[in-house]
Amino acid sequence: MPILDIKNVSKHFHGISAVNHISLTLEEGEMLGLVGPNGSGKTTLFNLISGFLKITSGTIVFRNEDITKYKTYQRVIKGINRTFQVVRPFSSLTVYENIKVGCLSRIEKNKIIHQKIMSLIESVGLKGLENEESRNLPLGHLKKLEVAKALATNPKLLLLDEPFGGLSHAEIAEIIPLVKEINERGVSVIVVEHVMSALVKLVEKVVVLNFGQKIAHGPINEVMTEKTVIDAYLGDDYVENK
């Protein structure tokens, strides 16, 4: 059963088409890559799924429910959450408080919330930093915090927007198993990423966007050899280096 069914979704900004008639399905527990050159509509599609932007036409169905007109917070409560390409921590709040904010979207007892936060802090590898203000954290830790904040809302579908952007190889190597573990727990994941070497370790299927349109969809190893994808996104250098 598909957890997410995007049907013919378009988004226009004053006549400019950012996303054009895209259809996409994601199965429960699946992890999908979403790639494409800058400006191809990846983040716009994330904004449409998470409700930060209103769609111009089309429908979004999540777990058999049409959520097209739902607001962002309603979608989060239904089970969709996301991270941001440019991390958005609550700067003056501590790591603990940042994660707690995500827990407060549901009515739970403070004791349960505390246990949940501590377990999330441990699972993303931020143990010992719970009382640190997030403005003092390096980017690698902020990316982990971003994931923990999203997980605090108990998502069924997690949208990761460039989780490896700006990170060193060592930091990427820490986050890959984290994302895999989240997926293994049953959370469906869509990952937008430019670091292809990391993406191939994570996903089996990938969707490629270009100028707001879907130009390829299928197993990552096959898609990455398609001429249209190489021409539009990867470039000849990628193929030669490979």
Binding site: S50, V76, N81, L93, L104, K149, T153
Partner: peptide, 24 residues
Amino acid sequence: SNFGLILKAIREDDFAAEAAGLNI
């Protein structure tokens, strides 16, 4: 209280607060 924490989160970044599932 938790309500105060929500207020601070909205002050810091209302976009991110909404992404945390809060009806800001």
